[in-house]
Design a protein around this nucleic acid. Structure first.
Lengths: 64, 64
DNA sequence: GATTTTTGTCAAGTATATTTTACATTTTTC
DNA sequence: GAAAAATGTAAAATATACTTGACAAAAATC
């Protein structure tokens, strides 16, 4: 499913997908696919995203 | 680096690598490699491991 | 101390995360 | 409302997560 927590955390930092992608050293398409919920990123990428957005793993990638 | 938090959470549940692997539907070698810190699992696998060990992502996979 | 269970590790193969290029659509800005 | 920026998406290629099978070493059990 879509990752709206990530999308809103990115909005809160006023970053485009492309800017976030560069901060994380991945392609824009990868960021897009993760927000869209298409796939299953690696933990290292999740951590990079969290650090770029000042969030933790539980805040962005945990569901009950 | 080694994931000692995961190793000790597994010990706390008295599970072998093989038993944890079965709970997560992966091979024992994958669990071994993650504990050893050799590589970079996907977030879905991390979540499966957390649920099997009654921990959250931050507890097992977050570093400052 | 012999047996069994658990763990480390390697090599070759398969599945899939991620990239690159590219174009269309939507949203923002002037 | 035209121009620019941001996003959705698709196909083909590449990198790497993960599997399978196998053997040796270490730790636990008797």
């Amino acid at each position: 499913m879509k990752n709206l927590k990530m999308k809103s955390a990115r909005a809160a930092k006023d970053l485009s997908q492309d800017q976030l992608a560069k901060l994380c050293n991945v392609s824009r398409q990868t960021i897009s696919a993760i927000e869209k919920g298409d796939y299953n990123p690696t933990i290292n990428l999740c951590v990079a995203i969290c650090k770029a957005l000042d969030k933790t793993l539980d805040e962005l990638f945990w569901e009950e």
